[in-house]
Each structure stands twice: as C-alpha cells, then as structure tokens.
C-alpha cells in the first residue's frame, strides 16, 4: 500500500474542498494527514469501526478544525459517499468545519479545543472495565496544548493506567497567531508528558517508517504519547511553515500552484 500516495491524494481533495467552499483549515490538515492515513489504512481495524462494533478502535480528532482532512479519509475508506462532501459547510449540511455528530465514523463532535482527550480517557476507562481489546487514539494540535483541560486529562490517563490510549500531537510548531513558542512556549513537550506519567515517543510525523511503529507501540499500565514532528502546510513551499496558512483560502493562482506541488510531491520516491 502506497501510504504516501494515498495521503497526497487526500491532500488534493482537501485543497479542492477548501478552495471550492472557501472554508477550512488547510495548514493543519496538511500536517496531520500522514497521521490520519497511518491510522485508517494501517493501524486501526476500519471494518469494525464501520460496523460500529462494540470492540472497535476509537479515533477522536481533538483538533477538530482539521475536519476536512478526516472527512476525506473517511470518505475514501467508504464511511460515506465522497459526493456527500460537496455539501461541506453549505446550509443544512452535517459536514461542518468541525466534526459533527451524525456522520458515520465520527465518534464525538469536537471543535472547542482541549475536549477530545477527556472524552478519550472516558472511553478508554470503559473499554478497560469491560475487558475490550479496542484502542483509543486522540489527535491533538500543538497550539491546543495550552488548554488546561488537556493536562487534567493527561493526569487522569496516567492515574487510570490507560495503556489502551494513545495521544498524538501534531507538532507543527505553528498556530493561528504565529510560532507556538512565541504564543505559549511548549518545548520539552515530551518531558512534560513523561513527567505526567506517560510513555512518550517522538518521531517524524511525515515518515511512515517512524510513524507506524510509534502508533502501534504500547507500554503496560501507561498511556502512550506520540509527539509527531510535522510541517504545517506540508507539501508545497507556498504554505509550508507559514502561520497564515492556518486557515488561508488559496486564490486561483495559488490553487494551481498548490495542486501542481501536491501532485508532484505525491509521486516523489523517498
């Protein structure tokens, strides 16, 4: 399976959604795409999720503003028809700019930052209590780490020895106002989570040979944290590492350039 190609195909779909509907958060969607494709194409049992099996793995997009990235992955995995995404952000749609309830594959509606991990902790406690083997994955943003509720949840994950919970941080180092280190410094993030009692792995969030083992790693009686170092706006020099592209909408010229860059990048051999 060519995960890289799959991820770039999804990025192209995100580009089309954002460009055609003039809404979305393109920068973070590009940075977290390889994490999503790793989970949905290689790590989780997607069939069970589709069947809403009680022992299905759970995925929560705590950085809910990157819903379009998740929507394209779910559509490609057959959770709903791709054509439904034409309604994205249009009046009366269920596909809002943040994951909404009522969409097949969305476990819980998110969008207010700092909520997803607590919900994941609750799910993981319940799964453990009923001796299910299912695993819970929560994807958070790095800017989101400033929310105090995340650290309340991290303490609880450790207290309840949730080795069925993996927290992933899309560490692209940028948020809406600029560098995370200027807005609210986060460095030593790995050490912070270690101090909270978590098993922490740091990896390149665009390299599958690092991402896949990190997402599959477990440690008894400890929750796992994967700090995935990524590039905001990954895939094109126009938007890479530029805070403005948190939710910029490309103009016609930029759209063509982005399309060309993402297409080329998807075909590159590593």
């Amino acid at each position: 399976m060519d995960l890289k190609k799959i991820a770039f195909d999804r990025r192209l779909e995100v580009l089309d959604m954002v460009y055609s509907k003039k809404s979305g958060h393109i920068g973070g969607s590009m940075s977290c795409m390889d994490i999503l494709t790793s989970l949905y194409y290689c790590v989780m049992d997607v069939q069970k999720i589709k069947e809403h099996h009680e022992d299905r793995d759970r995925f929560i997009l705590s950085k809910g503003h990157c819903s379009e990235a998740l929507y394209t992955v779910l559509a490609d995995c057959g959770f709903y028809d791709k054509a439904e995404l034409d309604t994205y952000t249009r009046f009366g749609t269920k596909f809002a700019e943040h994951p909404t309830k009522g969409i097949n594959g969305i476990e819980i509606a998110t969008g207010a930052l700092g909520h997803g991990l607590s919900a994941g902790v609750g799910m993981a406690i319940s799964l453990k209590n009923r001796k299910s083997d299912a695993h819970v994955y929560v994807l958070m943003g790095d800017g989101e780490q400033a929310e105090g509720s995340i650290w309340e949840a991290a303490m609880a994950a450790s207290k309840f020895e949730l080795d069925n919970l993996t927290m992933i941080i899309d560490r692209n180092r940028l948020q809406i106002s600029g560098s995370t280190e200027d807005v609210m410094p986060l460095d030593n993030l790995a050490e912070k989570y270690q101090a909270f009692g978590c098993h922490v792995i740091t990896c390149d969030g665009h390299k599958y040979k690092e991402l896949l083992p990190a997402l599959k790693e477990r440690k008894a009686k400890q929750p796992t944290v994967v700090v995935a170092n990524t590039v905001k706006g990954y895939g094109s020099s126009i938007m890479a590492n530029k805070a403005d592209w948190h939710h910029n909408i490309p103009n016609a010229e930029e759209y063509e350039q982005l399309k060309s860059d993402l297409t080329k990048k998807g075909l590159e051999v590593e």
Partner: peptide, 24 residues
C-alpha cells in the same frame, strides 16, 4: 471501577463522563 474520581478537575470530569457515556 465504576466510581471515577477525577480530582479537582471539573472540566475533565465532564469530558470523561461524555467518553464513558459514548461507550454505552
């Protein structure tokens, strides 16, 4: 095992409750 003490952290307590509820 069905008494979940979240400590002095009301935000997390309500969030955890939603996750527990989502599992039935």
């Amino acid at each position: 095992t069905r008494f979940i003490e979240c400590g002095i952290a009301e935000q997390n307590a309500v969030g955890v409750a939603s996750g527990l509820a989502k599992d039935g």
